[in-house]
């Protein structure tokens, strides 16, 4: 089941030659994604904070919570179009998609489990023996195989069938209203330098003028690079399915898109001041809603695996 690269999209970053996609690998990854066996006390699965219907993020939670109801310091990120992603996490701490699951797995406020113990649990589970065998022709679970299977699943979580995509491809269902067309023009003028089409992220780390939350003191990318220039910089997230990925920003401080736009027109810390009238904000939001991709949000292949 090779990945279909949407027309006009760049070449994926992920090296598929090292992890050829198979139906069986995808299925193993999907089972792992929805299984709380990954956490210390079998209470938290990946899906606890990454729900499909909301673009695989934790809806309604500014800061995501994990094991023992412990609260983290950031809003969980969305999971989509990761084959094109050059780095992962709000601060880019993770350098390869394969290694991403290790972070929540071992975080003391998320799953708080050791990889070696997870592998032990998987090897003791009859269900996984069969799944690993069908995916890798070897029933023994290892860290490498588990991580490759996770990538097999997440690499398929691709969103490219929104109303916006149909508009660009001039397909049925892609007719924009005048308001949406105006919103797209405004978007291209004011937002596209950081959120360029078609991925709606430039994949960089940017400082967007948010005042620091003194209870979190999150320095963002600086935490990883230790370079002062990276202070308060966070990864530019994709805007696809933004209608459902609220709350917004790395700490989920904004609940509504209008609040996000108000921040961008009020801050004086951007390279160029963004000026938008109230009507223009409404148009811009109308455009952002065209990025909703129901085919992706309700694709049964990505949902909880019912036996």
């Amino acid at each position: 089941m090779p990945l279909v690269i949407p027309k006009g999209w760049p070449k994926p970053v992920y090296d598929f030659s090292k992890n050829p996609l198979t139906k069986e690998g995808f299925e193993l990854g999907r089972q792992l994604f929805y299984d709380p066996i990954l956490s210390r006390d079998s209470t938290i699965s990946c899906a606890s904070c990454h729900l499909q219907a909301t673009g695989f993020t934790h809806v309604d939670h500014d800061l995501s919570h994990g094991i023992d109801d412990k609260v983290g310091t950031r809003n969980s990120m969305t999971i989509m179009n990761l084959a094109w992603s050059k780095n992962f996490m709000w601060d880019g701490a993770v350098n390869h998609l394969d290694m991403q699951p290790l972070a929540p797995l071992s975080s003391s406020v998320e799953m708080d489990e050791k990889l070696a113990r997870v592998i032990q649990k998987l090897n003791n589970a009859k269900k996984y023996k069969a799944l690993f065998f069908s995916a890798f022709n070897d029933s023994l679970a290892t860290g490498q195989k588990m991580l490759l299977a996770f990538s097999q699943f997440t690499l398929h979580l691709n969103s490219s069938n929104s109303k916006y995509d149909k508009y660009i491809r001039e397909e049925a269902g892609g007719t924009f209203t005048d308001q949406e067309k105006n919103g797209l023009q405004l978007f291209r003028k004011h937002c596209a330098s950081c959120h360029p089409e078609p991925l709606f992220t430039n994949q960089n780390f940017e400082k967007n003028g948010l005042p620091i939350d003194p209870t979190l003191n999150d320095l963002g990318r600086f935490t990883i690079t230790r370079m002062p220039v990276d202070s308060f910089k966070f990864k530019v997230p994709t805007l696809r399915n933004i209608q459902f990925t609220f709350p917004y920003m790395h700490d989920g401080r904004f609940k509504k898109l209008r609040e996000v736009l108000n921040h961008y027109t009020e801050t004086d810390e951007l390279k160029a001041q963004i000026v938008l009238s109230s009507n223009e904000k409404a148009d811009l939001i109308a455009f952002l809603l065209t990025l909703t991709d129901n085919d992706f949000l309700f694709d049964k292949r990505f949902g909880f695996p019912k036996d």
Partner: peptide
């Protein structure tokens, strides 16, 4: 090797020689 994704054998992260919070 540090940017090569999931590797096996002695380089399998389950050996406990991999930093989870920051890749490497």
């Amino acid at each position: 090797i540090n940017v090569s994704g999931a590797l096996g054998g002695d380089l399998d992260p389950q050996k406990g020689m991999y930093w989870a919070w920051q890749s490497g």
